[in-house]
């Protein structure tokens, strides 16, 4: 069970004031939330690293949270930024098994639907989203993605590049 939006917001406000106990609870809850947020949206072997990088970003950029606003959209913006950064770094890795425990999206469904990675992927053209999912998330090679989609290898690369660029401009879009 992950804490709800209001609890997370309260913990973050306390953490900005230097309360270590609240910060421990907040980071623990965020770790769980991010793990589910990234599930099936990146190669499973990369999830641990990505969650940790996002927690470090949360820590470094905690002054940028506006305490008058909801917490999850802020965390999601940081999460999306780190995710796209992570996708850019991935070329071909060992493709791990998807962890079925983690396939569900985080709770707080209304908020989560608006901030989800699925929605961000849905904002770019299908031909770009498809090859990003195949190569960057499922771990297919460029040649395999080209054969599967009927695009040439260079077009797959171009579409990945364009899709990531477009998504990075849309991080704060709902």
């Amino acid at each position: 069970m992950i804490a709800n939006e209001e609890t997370l917001r309260h913990l973050m406000i306390k953490a900005q004031g230097g309360d270590r106990q609240c910060y421990t609870s907040l980071l623990t809850e965020c770790e769980k939330w991010l793990r589910r947020y990234y599930a099936r949206k990146i190669n499973p072997a990369e999830v641990d690293d990505l969650v940790q990088e996002t927690l470090i970003s949360l820590h470094r950029k905690r002054a940028s949270y506006d305490p008058t606003k909801a917490f999850l959209p802020w965390l999601a913006a940081i999460g999306r930024y780190r995710w796209i950064d992570g996708l850019r770094k991935i070329y071909r890795h060992e493709h791990g098994e998807l962890n079925e425990e983690l396939v569900a999206d985080p709770q707080d469904e209304d908020v989560t639907a608006k901030v989800s990675l699925e929605r961000l992927l849905g904002m770019i053209p299908d031909k770009q989203a498809d090859v990003i999912a195949m190569v960057k998330i499922e771990g297919l090679s460029i040649a395999e993605a080209a054969a599967k989609t009927g695009q040439s290898e260079s077009l797959v690369k171009v579409n990945i590049h364009r899709g990531l660029k477009k998504m990075s401009a849309l991080i704060e879009s709902e």
Partner: peptide, 9 residues
Amino acid sequence: MARPGVGNL
């Protein structure tokens, strides 16, 4: 832009 948030555009 210093304070990010999905929906803040």
